[in-house]
Every structure is written in C-alpha cells, then in structure tokens.
Amino acid sequence: MEKALKIFFCLLAVTLSFGVNAQSDVEMADTMRSEGKIYVVVSIILIVLAGLIAYLFIMDRKVKKLEDQLTDKKH
C-alpha cells in the first residue's frame, strides 16, 4: 500500500514537472490561469461531480433497501 502511494506521488510529481514547458505564441487561456479564475471553474465542476456521485450512492442504497424488503417478504 505504502509503495503504491509512493508510486502515485512520484507520477504526480513527474506530471507536474511537465508544466515547465516553454511558452510559445499559440493562444491559450493564460490570463484566466494567472488570475486564478480557473479554480472557480474547477470547483464548480467538482461540485456537480460530487453531487451526481452522491445521488448515485443514494440510488444504490434505495435499491439495497428494496432487495432487503423482498427477502423479508419471501420468508
């Protein structure tokens, strides 16, 4: 487990280090990034993702409840 975590963080560090790419004249959303507004977008997307996943968990639990009710009825 510890080894797996180590590998994960090494990979993460390697990916981050690619960030030192040379600037070129291709237009990218650099201003948005430097202003930090990109974090707003990331946060909003994560809220939506978290909400949908929570919803999926709730549905999963509802189905489990139905299954339990059904087994109770059979006996």
Partner: peptide, 25 residues
C-alpha cells in the same frame, strides 16, 4: 472510480497541455 474522476477533473483542467494551433485550450 470516484477518486480517479476527481483526479481527472482537477488535473485535466489545471495541468499543462501541449500548445497547438486551432485546438488551443
């Protein structure tokens, strides 16, 4: 699955990508 998707949504928007014409961001 949840951990991977959270990682993908953060890294996919924040990490550096190749700078290419037409495609841009």
């Amino acid at each position: 699955a949840i951990a991977l998707l959270f990682y993908v949504h953060i890294a996919g928007l924040l990490f550096d990508v190749p700078r290419l014409n037409i495609l841009n961001e």
